[in-house]
């Protein structure tokens, strides 16, 4: 339950950090500036809150730096959504913060590393931008499930989204095939 609270607070935090991130697009930004800007955005928005598996450390839980942004770990098998029943609780997260059970079934955060087979390696910049803008898988497929926030695509400029993409190309690839979402009960 404590983790659940943590994530709800994290979700609120995302909204706040976005308000701060409203930069204007700058044409012709050098590639390395883009990577630096992307890193800044990814670190401050906190994509790792959901896209990196959390582990327990001496100072409490934290995203695992060795599996940075590699999504829900394939070896943590989840077979069905949690039955929440009546009451105020609306969703639950795995201890890793990478699997989310709610009225939509179970969603698993995707592997954002550049691994060609299991991550975003094959994705074009356009596809990445369209995914966040349209909130659809690969930009044109099924609607993305919660809790992937729609605000990024609504607020960030093209330059910001391209910067995030540029930064994600530079992180170490991690081979981890994230399962497809599970339907509701």
């Amino acid at each position: 339950m404590r983790l659940l609270l943590v994530c709800l607070i994290a979700l609120l935090g995302i909204g706040l950090s976005l308000v701060l991130g409203e930069a204007e697009s700058e044409p012709g930004v050098a590639a390395q500036d883009r990577v630096a800007r992307g890193r800044y955005l990814v670190k401050s928005i906190g994509c790792a809150d959901c896209h990196s598996p959390w582990v327990m450390g001496p100072n409490g839980p934290h995203p695992d730096p060795d599996r940075d942004l590699s999504g829900h770990p394939a070896d943590l098998v989840i077979e069905a959504p949690l039955a929440l029943g009546e009451g105020p609780w609306g969703l639950a997260a795995s201890r890793t913060m990478t699997a989310w059970s709610g009225p939509w079934g179970v969603s698993f955060t995707r592997n954002l590393t550049p691994d060609p087979e299991t991550g975003l390696g094959e994705w074009s910049e356009d596809e990445f931008v369209a995914t966040l803008r349209n909130m659809r898988h690969r930009g044109i497929g099924r609607p993305l499930l919660p809790p992937m926030p729609p605000m990024y695509g609504q607020n960030l400029t093209d330059e910001d989204l391209k910067s995030i993409y540029a930064y994600l190309r530079t992180i170490p690839p991690v081979k981890n095939r994230v399962p497809t979402p599970l339907p509701p009960r």
Partner: peptide
């Protein structure tokens, strides 16, 4: 579509964005 009919949470998240189209 359950994510659409039941996804009150999705709506809630979307509402947080409140960006003009």
């Amino acid at each position: 579509t359950p994510a659409i009919t039941l996804g009150g949470l999705a709506l809630l998240l979307a509402a947080c964005g409140n960006a003009p189209p």
